[in-house]
């Protein structure tokens, strides 16, 4: 039998899927045990008990100084920034992407510029953003928006222009105006794609968020990681990284289910 035809059963697939996670856990535990045997105060690969104690302290014990629960305060601060960033980026992308997708004149105006801007490395703009917009929330949100909007616009534009021409012509023969065609023919068909694009941009959005928080902040997930990095406090960094990953996965699932619920007809043929 050829290798390409060997298909794992349900159980085998589950085991195979879990294997890399298990290998990572074993590698971590072995490495941690080795290092802790040599130096019990080692900070690099803390023991599970240390991690648990640290998570308890971060998530379930009020901070001695501020009385806040650090993990929740940080999560709230970061998710607020992320929500603003994603929200503004998605709205901008929807308006501009739709305009450029529907109207050839707008496409001629916007497409080259957006293509150009999308190539600017956003992190290189960070020092400029901080000078122009100050160190507050605005510059952090702006970085996320600048980082992901051009890609969202381009993607929407491509989706809109890839709609079957016949569909537009048909709407025209039914005497629909440009406005109506944009609203009733194109918009419903690009919305599911916008949500999918947004899902793909969650990773970059987190990247920009954490980069901005690392430079100047007083709360946030990235802020905490870069703050305790100074003290090699891996017992804080590991749980935060895991938490950020989990948040991103949940956000992805939430958007995916939103798309399915709002546009069930778009699931046909997926």
């Amino acid at each position: 039998m050829r290798a390409i035809n060997i298909r794992p059963g349900r159980g085998t697939a589950l085991v195979l899927g879990l294997l890399p996670f298990a290998a990572l856990a074993v590698a971590y535990l072995a490495g941690s045990a080795l290092r802790l045997a040599e130096n019990p105060s080692d900070k690099l690969l803390p023991a599970l008990t240390t991690l648990a104690a640290s998570i308890d302290l971060l998530a379930f014990t009020p901070d001695r100084r501020t009385g806040d629960y650090l993990l929740w305060a940080d999560t709230a601060a970061s998710l607020t920034r992320l929500a603003w960033g994603l929200g503004i980026a998605a709205s901008l992308a929807l308006v501009l992407g739709l305009l450029a997708g529907v109207l050839p004149v707008m496409r001629a105006l916007l497409a080259p510029f957006v293509a150009f801007v999308s190539m600017v490395p956003p992190l290189a703009l960070l020092p400029i953003l901080f000078i122009v917009m100050g160190l507050g929330e605005t510059s952090k949100i702006a970085l996320i928006v600048i980082g992901i909007t051009p890609i969202l616009i381009r993607d929407l534009m491509l989706t809109a222009t890839a709609l079957p021409r016949e569909m537009i012509v048909k709407a025209e023969t039914l005497s629909a105006s440009s406005w109506l065609i944009a609203l009733r023919v194109v918009l419903p068909q690009v919305m599911p794609r916008l949500i999918d694009s947004l899902r793909l941009q969650i990773g970059p959005a987190f990247l920009f968020l954490i980069a901005a928080e690392a430079i100047s902040s007083d709360a946030g997930l990235g802020y905490r990681i870069f703050l305790v990095r100074r003290y090699l406090a891996m017992e804080v960094i590991f749980p935060y990284v895991a938490w950020i990953t989990l948040l991103a996965v949940l956000l992805d699932l939430a958007l995916s289910s939103l798309r399915r619920r709002m546009f069930p007809w778009a699931e046909v043929g997926r």
Binding site: R65, P127, F130, I131, G134, L135, G136, A214, I215, S216, S217, D218, Y223, F226, L227
Partner: peptide, 24 residues
């Protein structure tokens, strides 16, 4: 005491630029 101020963590390479922004 530290309760009388609020502390904002800022990376050292950005200090000079940050001081010139109105919020700092």
């Amino acid at each position: 005491s530290e309760r009388d101020v609020s502390v904002v963590n800022t990376a050292d390479p950005d200090m000079v630029g940050a001081f010139q922004t109105p919020g700092v």
